[in-house]
Amino acid sequence: MRIAVVVFPGSNCDHDAYHAFKHVLGVETVFVWHKEADLRGADAVVLPGGFSYGDYLRAGAIASRSPVMDEVSRFAGKGGPVIGICNGFQILCEAGLLPGALMRNRGLRFICRDVFLRCETSGTAFTSRLSNGDVIRLHVAHGEGNYFATPETIVRLEAEQRIVFRYCDPTGRLDPEWNFNGSLEAIAGVLNEGRNVLGMMPHPERMAEAILGGTDGIAVLGSLLDYLESLPLKGGKRGEVAREAAGAAQKGAEGTKGASGREAGGRCKAV
C-alpha cells in the first residue's frame, strides 16, 4: 500500500501528512512534486494544506492547473481515493473535482484553533471508523474556508449524503457560533459524486498523535487505510485493483442514482 502526498510550491502540511501516514500509521508514503505527471503507483493521494502559489489569484486556483492535477483527475476518475485537506480542499474545488468554492472566512480573519466536527456520513472510504453523529476534535488554520455552493448543489449534496462533516459544538449540536468561518450549512467536508474524493478544511493529520494534541484525526486517516486494506488483492497489484473496484462501484452508484450508493464497493454501507 502506498500513499502519495503531492507537494506544491507553498504546501506546508505535506510533511505533517507524510509523518502521520508513514510514522504514525506505518504505511509507505511518497512525495510527488506538482510538476510530475506520475503518481508513482500510489493507492491513495493526499493534497496537503498550505498556501500553494502564495494563494495568488484565489486560494488553490493556480495549483489546480498544475501538471500533476491532470494525473490526479485521471486517478480520481478511475475511482482512486483522494483526500484534500485545507488548501487541498480548495485545490479540489478549483479543479472542479468537488462542487462549490471556499471563500473568505465570515469574519475576514485567519483562524487557527481546534474545532469540533460531527460525522454526517459514516461508512465512506474516509469515515468507516466513525458513526453518524460522532464528534471529533480537529485543528483548523485557514483564512478561506467559508464553504459556498449554489442552493441546488446543497440540496443535491444533502440528498446524496455527500456532506461528510459539519462544524458543531463539543456536544455535536449545530450552532452558528461554532460555525466559525460561516460555511453554508456548516459544511466542513464534502465528497464527490463517485464518493472517492473528499475535501475537508480541518486537519486530521495534525491530530494523529497524543503528543501533538489529540488522535481524532486517525479516525479519518485510518478509515482510508481500512478502505484500501478491504479491497481485494488481485495479482499483487493493489493499486490497480483499488481503482477498478471503486470505478465499478461508481458505475453502480450512477445506475441506481445514488440510492443504494456504492454497496458494490463492499465497504461503504451508509450511502
Partner: peptide, 9 residues
C-alpha cells in the same frame, strides 16, 4: 473562465 475568475462565485 478557465483561470482568472471562478464563475461559481
Amino acid at each position: 473562465r478557465r483561470l482568472l475568475a471562478n464563475t461559481l462565485i
